[in-house]
Design a protein around this nucleic acid. Structure first.
Lengths: 236, 236
DNA sequence: CAAAAAGCGAGAGCACTGCTCACATTTCTC
DNA sequence: GAGAAATGTGAGCAGTGCTCTCGCTTTTTG
């Protein structure tokens, strides 16, 4: 089955990815050098092209890999909440897992959510892994919807079509208000992480984690909404 | 006074900046090529270094310039609100000016708020222009505070020191709750713009403008808070 | 089992990049 | 007008992504 060549190929491919991730962490996406990887590998530069047809292809592999590891981290974080009806805790854990992963892998986070590499168009196969962490968030919304949580926010007409398309696309029962609030919360969380990671909180806030917590709590409370017949969902 | 040389120098410098902005728009920050600029200018590549000591220095000039133009755009947008006590309108106009400027100058926005250029550390002189657009936002908060608007949000202990430092640094009277709510709103707005600009709303939302509006409205309502003695300003 | 095919690494080469340096020319200042 | 400062030239260094040809080795096929 696994011939000598086949095994060597996967090993070399993995090693290239490993070195590339290392470079990414040090230099960022712009500093990703195929030649440097080849050098570290003890190969001549052109040999790399047997494994990745281009720099962009290696970039795609790194992006898919990063999305996947982020997704796994968020899944793990959210899953660690035992009381599955404690939606606020699930929201907190999911978002904290996002931030933690971002802080632990800043260059990879930047690769995913920072400035797009100019001239690079992410191929279709990045989409499934890219949705992985969002599925966790959407599932919380869906479960809340099933548990009877409701929101009363004005939904602008202009976005209604998008929301109903999203609903079927995501396969959720969450209503327009829930979806909209979820999108807004997502925005806020991504914004807070990016501001911190990209250095815009320097000279603004010494404890970015505390600001992040506040953002998460504020939107968490909004997301909780009201469950009809139950007391309003209090708590900080 | 203005000798031939002096005049030629500012003209050439301006021309370099103009060409650089053009390149930025097409290729992004990573594709900024001093040699290409020199070529377009009809000079030999090394001559550029008489005007900018390095690529980073040119980048700094571009960043300062971009911050300044963004600041002016936000100022203009916010100033166009005639009823200065209509704080919601001021918030709407300021944030819409931000988004509009981002959409009109995506590469420059990315330069300011996207992935930091690796190995590049923005020097101190970028700070004043960087604060320009934020001053507009803070001023709205300050004016609201003076008009008696209050918020009742839990302020985590961990961020209190930051908030009081911020208050004196910004020279505002806004309370902890107001500042915190302002920071969160800022986060959300930045997040929404970046998600849209960096392509993360593709296949999610067809009308990113409508989502942005919803985010602005949601936080706008929170920012409004309550003015004691006045009717409560609705709720989200 | 031998021949053909496919995979892989080496090395040279192209066009590009940021940046440095010695040199000539032009402009400003004393 | 002489010296100093500013400016442009052109060669050169080290680096990049990528292509192509050439051998060698492993795998597949008849």
């Amino acid at each position: 089955m696994t011939g000598v060549r086949e095994r060597a190929r996967v090993a070399t491919t993995a090693e290239i990815m490993r070195l590339a991730r290392g470079q990414l962490a040090v230099e960022g996406a712009a500093g990703l050098s195929l030649r440097a990887i080849a050098r570290d590998l003890g190969m001549v530069s052109s040999a790399i092209y047997r494994y990745f047809a281009s720099r962009d292809e290696l970039l795609t592999a790194l992006i898919i890999d990063a999305y996947d590891r982020l997704g796994a981290a968020v899944e793990d974080g959210e899953r660690s909440v035992r009381r599955r009806t404690d939606f606020l805790a699930r929201w907190r854990h999911a978002t904290h897992a996002m931030r933690q992963w971002a802080m632990d892998h800043p260059a990879e986070w930047a690769l995913l959510f920072g400035t797009p590499v100019p001239g690079y168009a992410a191929p279709q196969d990045t989409i499934p892994p890219a949705t992985r962490y969002t599925v966790v968030l959407v599932t919380i919304l869906t479960d809340m919807s099933a548990a009877g949580h409701r929101h009363d926010v004005a939904v602008p007409k202009a976005i209604r079509a998008d929301l109903s398309r999203l609903r079927s696309q995501l396969g959720t029962d969450a209503g327009d208000t829930s979806l909209l609030i979820g999108l807004a919360a997502w925005s806020a969380v991504m914004g807070a992480i990016n501001l911190e990671l990209f250095g815009h909180l320097h000279n603004v806030v010494e404890e970015p984690g505390a600001l992040f917590d506040a953002v998460v709590e504020q939107h968490g409370r909004t997301i909780m909404g009201t469950v009809p017949g139950g007391e309003p969902s209090e708590r900080a």
